[in-house]
Amino acid sequence: MSTDDASLREQLKSFGFSDKEVDTYTALLAHGEAKASDIAQSAGVSKRYVYNVFSHFEERGLVEMRDHETPTTARAVDPSTVVEQLSDRLSSLEEQLEAIHEPDPDVDRRYEVIKSNSTVRKRIARLIRSADNEVNVSVPASLLPDLAEDLEAAVDRGVFTLVLVNDDGTESVPEAALQGIGDVARVWEHAGPILVCVDRRHGLFSPLEVIVGNASDQQAIGFTEDRLSPLLVGSFLGNYWPLAEEVYVHDPDDLPATYDRFRHAVLAATLHRRRGRELTAEMEVRSANSRDDYQTRRGRVIRVKQKLVRPATNSVPIENSLVVTDGEDHYTVDGPGAITETFEARTVTLDVADDRSESVSEMVARSSKLDE
């Protein structure tokens, strides 16, 4: 390997070598053993600098000084010995760092680079099959047939599932192929990135080229990360979802039903209210932006703000919330991470309101008077 090799230079610099030290050390390696004057000439540095830096190199086990001879020479320690010494030091450093590192045992964060087309396909299918309560996917049309059965199974077991199918240059997806594959399925006429987010923690992000077209040097990233997944879902719902054509909406669950994914409750409330049903909501909530204990609140759903299905009723791009009244007050509720709402909800149980109780319009009117 040339002593001018950029990769070698960068690797030595990563171990703390300066540029001049790299030049001096590689010059010595090229000579094997030499006088300071010869090294100075080869490295383009002063003879005084060579003597100074060789003193440091000797302490680091890189050279052996032969100062009992005249003139004094330096001999490069065999590189295999140097690498072994560095490995021992790194192992010792790892043990010391691990001793003071105390990660949260309840938090699992991992990342993985995936290069293989087949591995990416298998990983997406496995993620969907593993979902307990939420799946958000954006996939090319050519991949949909491989995933349809797993997506249908997710919907059947009550997993909240949003599916965005992107145009990847293949034949258009027939509407029949989208029936039942999600709670909502949309088609975008453009090619978008591949995204899978499951249960607000697990997922995969990939350029389209990893799946479609000729082999490329593009790579997919698989992750288990409770902070990244919500951000990707927010981008998915805020940037891609609104641009796509809505093709299929699944019938809502029979009520009463309990949801531990808030967006699922928002979709169900929207669809039932569009069928003319007045709803009650019993929720485990706490004040937004707090770590208060959860408490149970119950009231009537008087409005839903959402953009999961058309027409959208929200005013903020990623807003999905319920407006609820208990007859004395009305308040807004969102899921975990709520910012502008009154409460964030952990679970929501929706039911059809008792016809004998006060109507929604009466509650709203009375609540409005209280606000005056």
Rank of each mutant, 00 (worst) to 15 (best):
S7Q: 10
Q11H: 11
K13M: 13
S14I: 12
K20E: 13
T26S: 06
T26Y: 12
L29D: 06
A30M: 10
G32F: 15
G32E: 09
E33P: 09
A36N: 14
I39N: 02
I39T: 09
K47Y: 05
Y49Q: 10
V50L: 11
V50R: 04
V50Y: 04
E59I: 10
G61Q: 14
L62V: 12
D67V: 14
R75A: 07
D78G: 03
Q96F: 08
E98A: 10
A99S: 10
H101K: 06
P103V: 06
D106L: 15
R110E: 13
I114P: 03
S116I: 15
N117Q: 15
S118L: 15
I124R: 01
R126S: 07
R126W: 07
A131S: 12
D132E: 14
V139W: 03
S142K: 10
L143M: 12
P145E: 06
A148K: 13
L151D: 01
E152G: 04
E152R: 15
V155S: 03
R157N: 06
F160I: 13
V163W: 01
V165L: 11
V173Q: 05
V173H: 05
E175H: 14
Q179E: 10
G180L: 13
G182W: 01
W188Q: 07
W188D: 10
G192D: 12
G203R: 01
F205E: 08
E209L: 12
V210L: 09
A220F: 13
I221W: 10
G222Q: 08
T224F: 02
S229W: 07
G234F: 04
F236K: 05
Y240M: 13
V249G: 02
H250K: 06
D253Q: 08
L255T: 07
F262N: 01
F262L: 07
H264K: 10
H264G: 07
T280N: 00
M283G: 01
V285M: 01
R286A: 06
R286N: 05
A288Y: 02
D293W: 09
R298Y: 06
R300S: 05
V301G: 00
L308Q: 00
T313F: 01
I318V: 14
V324K: 00
D329E: 11
H330Y: 13
V333D: 00
G335S: 04
I339A: 06
T340Y: 12
T342D: 15
F343Y: 15
R356G: 03
L370H: 07
E372D: 09
